[in-house]
Design a protein around this nucleic acid. Sequence first.
DNA 1: TCAAAAGTGTTGAGCGTACACCCATGC
DNA 2: GCATGGGTGTACGCTCAACACTTTTGA
Lengths: 229, 229
Amino acid sequence: MTSTYKYPRPALTVDCVVFGLDEPELKVLLIRRDLEPFRGKWALPGGFVHLDESLEDAAKRELREETGLEKVFLEQLYTYGNVERDPRERVVTVAYYALVRLSEHRVVASTDARDAAWFGVHDVPRLAFDHDRILKAAYQRLQNKLRYEPVGFELLPKKFTLRQLQRLYEIILDRSLDKRNFRKKILGMEVLEELDEVEADVAHRAARLYRFNPKRYREMVKRGVNFEI
Amino acid sequence: MTSTYKYPRPALTVDCVVFGLDEPELKVLLIRRDLEPFRGKWALPGGFVHLDESLEDAAKRELREETGLEKVFLEQLYTYGNVERDPRERVVTVAYYALVRLSEHRVVASTDARDAAWFGVHDVPRLAFDHDRILKAAYQRLQNKLRYEPVGFELLPKKFTLRQLQRLYEIILDRSLDKRNFRKKILGMEVLEELDEVEADVAHRAARLYRFNPKRYREMVKRGVNFEI
DNA sequence: TCAAAAGTGTTGAGCGTACACCCATGC
DNA sequence: GCATGGGTGTACGCTCAACACTTTTGA
């Protein structure tokens, strides 16, 4: 921290990698740019940080303004500050990633007359700026996170079956899991509440519904329980 | 990414949490502030990001200017952007943490006529700004990192004994480890090179020296070897 | 009655953990 | 010869991974 605040300043933005689960695929929400540079290209939703809001607030605001999403899981990912990441001038961006329940946010308002669309995470076009790199980092972070913390519930409806949960793990981690072992493991963590309800409208035996219990989870964390899958 | 770059901008700084191992203790390098606010208080070394340097370059430059340190392990930690973290005006800081071999950097030049000093990580005074919080986060990150990646070598001399390494783990993780198990585990990872040298100047049987082999490490990572301690 | 998925237990292998003694060296 | 740490092996328990069949339900 030096003596003056008068240096010329980089611009500061936030960008969000928004993941949603649309079985059988993990999707990312992108915005089509209507301005240069990269006009017409797809990019991560994001924008400038205002002086009177925290970084996380800025990310939430941009998410709301550009995609209509609110109250989603949001976590800081990394800050990107290479000198030439924006062709016009110096822009540093703080990247966040978000997890949304598509079941509860089906329609994403293309507010602002802007295009917004979900892309399969393995089927994303070349993005503007260094957003490809950010997306890749976010996906890796999600994979790691899921492996050690029960964060996947953020992508499922509040009530879900064990099969849905297993599919989520398989989709994100990109490998298949043994059904019996998975159930043993996940139930053994004691963070799922078994409900007296079963799924509806299926053409076969209906599966039991469960709900994640965050309070129980916090207790387990305190006790040092391991949530590795 | 919206239409204009003309928003008023937060100031952007980098701050570094510098760890060094000074057996039997882990230490942090702090700078005494000679300006308001928090004049006379201890703080993390850091300063403004210039327009023509990346964030990591800025962190390296500040480290060099304020502490004389060069060529150290450096990794981005987190970006702090609460509105009131600097009493004067809006300042966002990208925090880094660094690991240095005290054996090779014994003397830290207090360049700039500034006080610089090492503090035991459990014995740090109240710091300026939100630097307490940053330090805490960096320490946790180091603990986690060490648990899953062989990063501790950055704190030891290039040639070290297994005992030194074990002590390092014990100091950072803050628990004691079984000697035989530790040796089995760490040697089993096959990233240490056994040297034909032993430590000198000890009043008992001299221990063999080892060296970390980063190339072998990268191979092991590719093979999916687990480095959890 | 058929199709589809739900739900359930056991076994073997490998890994982590706990634990104690002899050895080499310098003084 | 003694004090100090260096260096080594084994046994047990637990967890992980592999694996297949019966049950339930709706169409």
